[in-house]
Computed example of a mutant assay.
Amino acid sequence: MLKTMNQSFLNGVVSTAVSKKNIYGAVLCVEKGDNSLPLVSSAGNLTADKPYFIASVTKLYVTAVLLKLKSENRLHLQNKISKYLSNDVLHELHLLKGIDYSKEITIKHLMSNTSGIPDYFSSDVIAALTAGKDQSWGFEKTITSAKQKKPKFPPGKRAQYSDTNYQLLGKIIETITEKDIHTVFKEFIFDELKLEETYLFDDVNDTRPAPFFFKDREIHLPKYMSSIGPEGGIVSTAKESMIFLKAFINGHFFPKEYFNELKKWKILFGPGLFFYGVGIASQPISLKEVKGGLIGHWGQTGAFSFYHPKTDLYFTGTINQFYGHSVAAKMMIKIIKMYK
């Protein structure tokens, strides 16, 4: 280790991030596996304890629930989704060249983004939301939109990021548990880990989460954020995200040997360049570590939760900017370099 990691160094890393264009706030929590480094720093318009939208980092929480259900023999990842979803939902959900593959899709296909089901979160939807046109995207609207788009490959043949997959996984969880996704998250994760500032956003009048930015504009999307539950609706803090991340990585919810099945990486070129396994992502941090970088998940709001196995470092936090991921990655890389 070239330097001593301390609060002053971390403060400098976070302050530098906020000096970048269109980055108005940042928070970063860092811990080592042996609990020797519990540090958190914030700058700009964010504080260390401010709740924020973790967006697609929510998918890690969905993965935790699914693998816990698997450990209890309440599901198998190879189960067909037709076991849990109605014919109305499945009908022509994946229609390619006149063949309806919908009933061939498995839970694992959804988790690994290899289902081939189109992503409702298209460029048109993104453009409307980032322009401030708030709108609700519940399950029915998501499925209707996905059916209007053309799949690019049969299930299992390739990987393409699709938020539609996780809306479907949320519905499958509700079917298995006979509880709504809010209750499942609360009982399986939030209460289990005694998280007091973490919850599923469902009230359009809730002003607790920090608003995030798109370039130089503050974005308020309460209708949208309250409608996307299992796809990206969780609100948390950097400290409580850290509690979850360490529990997730260290086998609190499911046997650690399950990780061998999760690390079946397939490259994705959007959003951004990274690898996707089964319910988890891998972000390369250098050409030498193409498949040995950060393990966890990004959120479109600039949120992140990652573990770096080689240095045994954990990172959680947010840049709170729709396109702020490169700045967040640089913060983590600066710290990782100290331990290499």
Score class of each variant (00 low, 15 high):
Phe185Tyr: 15
Glu178Asn: 15
Val327Lys: 05
Glu218Leu: 14
Val30Asp: 09
Lys256Ile: 15
Gly299Ser: 10
Pro284Cys: 02
Thr142Leu: 00
Ser36Thr: 15
Tyr24Ile: 03
Ser326Val: 06
Thr183Tyr: 01
Ile267Phe: 12
Ala238Arg: 08
Ile319Asn: 12
Val27His: 08
Ala210Ser: 13
Glu197Val: 04
Phe214Met: 02
Lys32Met: 05
Asp216His: 12
Leu200Pro: 14
Val18Met: 05
Leu268Asp: 02
Val184Ser: 03
Gly270Pro: 00
His182Thr: 12
Ser227Trp: 07
Leu85His: 11
Thr301His: 07
Glu140Trp: 00
Thr237Arg: 10
Lys266Glu: 02
Gly44Trp: 09
Ile219Cys: 07
Val14Asn: 08
Ile335Asn: 10
Asp203Glu: 13
Val18His: 06
Asn250Arg: 13
Lys68Pro: 00
Gln148Gly: 15
Lys291Gly: 03
Thr198Gly: 14
Gly232His: 10
Gly272Met: 06
Lys103Asp: 02
Thr144Phe: 06
His220Thr: 07
Ile99Arg: 11
Met1Ser: 11
Ala128Met: 09
Met338Val: 09
Leu200Gly: 15
Thr183Cys: 01
Tyr276Arg: 11
Ile336Ser: 04
Tyr199Phe: 15
Arg158Leu: 01
His91Cys: 07
Ile176Asp: 01
Thr58Met: 04
Leu67His: 14
Lys288Glu: 13
Tyr276Val: 13
Ile335Pro: 07
Ile105Lys: 05
Glu240Val: 11
Gly132Trp: 10
Gly293Lys: 03
Ile54Tyr: 01
Ser8Trp: 02
Gln321Pro: 06
Phe275Gln: 08
Phe253Tyr: 06
Leu245Met: 11
Gln300His: 07
Leu60Met: 14
Asp191Gly: 04
Thr318Cys: 10
Gly270Gln: 08
Tyr339Pro: 00
Ser162Tyr: 04
Val204Gly: 02
Phe201Pro: 14
Glu174Ala: 06
Asp163Thr: 13
Gly296Tyr: 02
Ile336Val: 13
Tyr258Ile: 06
Phe213Arg: 09
Gly272Lys: 04
Asn73Ile: 00
Asp124Glu: 15
Tyr120Cys: 02
Leu193Arg: 13
Ser102Gly: 05
